[in-house]
Amino acid sequence: MASNKQLTARDIMSSGVQCVGAHQSLFEAAKMMRDLNVGCLPICGDDNRLTGLITDRDIVVKCCAEGVDPAAVQAGSLAGTLHWIDAGAGATEALEIMETHQIKRLPVIDVGKGHSLVGMITEANLAKNLDDEQIAEFAARVYAGTS
């Protein structure tokens, strides 16, 4: 394996990511997550550009636990703050963004190709591509103070 300093976000990401539309319901998002066997979906606007992310936990905590019908809530309403990385950026930069913002998933955008979503970097991608010391630091920083 090449040194991770040479790896780019594109090298370590998972491709084939599917978006839920900002105007689709949380119920539809939940069905997509089930069918794709994922716990997070990118949210894309009408222009197919990334507007946010939604997790299965978001749906449970911010909708279901509040007694709100998931079929009545648009996915875009839970978009939150968006962090992403360019596909050509270094893998180390992706790690730094995830640690700084304490996030477990990072969308990968190809700025040179119309700002299109090309993949997602997850904890599993990091575990496969980084050394033990970097993984330990990531875990300590991202999970610090969380239960």
Rank of each mutant, 00 (worst) to 15 (best):
Q74I: 05
Q74G: 12
Q74W: 10
Q74C: 14
Q74R: 15
A75S: 15
A75M: 09
G76K: 14
S77F: 08
S77A: 14
S77T: 14
S77H: 13
L78G: 07
L78C: 07
L78D: 05
A79C: 10
A79M: 12
A79P: 01
G80V: 04
T81P: 00
T81H: 14
L82I: 03
L82N: 11
H83M: 09
H83N: 12
H83D: 05
H83G: 00
W84K: 13
W84L: 05
I85T: 05
D86T: 05
D86Y: 03
A87Q: 11
G88Q: 13
G88H: 11
G88T: 08
G88V: 02
A89R: 12
A89I: 00
A89E: 14
A89W: 03
G90D: 12
G90L: 11
G90M: 11
G90T: 13
G90C: 11
A91L: 04
A91E: 06
T92F: 06
T92L: 15
T92G: 11
T92R: 15
E93P: 00
A94R: 06
A94G: 01
L95C: 03
L95P: 00
E96K: 14
E96L: 08
I97S: 09
I97F: 05
I97P: 02
I97N: 10
M98Q: 08
M98A: 06
M98P: 02
E99K: 15
E99H: 04
E99R: 15
T100C: 07
T100G: 07
T100D: 13
T100I: 01
H101M: 07
H101Q: 11
H101S: 08
Q102E: 13
Q102H: 13
I103C: 04
I103N: 07
K104H: 07
K104F: 00
K104G: 04
K104E: 01
R105F: 01
R105K: 12
R105W: 01
L106W: 02
L106E: 02
P107I: 09
P107E: 09
P107V: 09
P107R: 10
V108H: 05
V108F: 05
V108L: 06
V108S: 05
I109A: 04
I109C: 03
I109R: 03
D110I: 01
D110G: 06
D110M: 07
V111A: 13
V111G: 03
V111T: 13
V111I: 12
V111K: 14
G112N: 11
G112D: 10
G112H: 09
G112M: 06
G112C: 04
K113V: 02
K113D: 12
G114H: 13
G114W: 12
G114S: 12
G114P: 08
G114E: 13
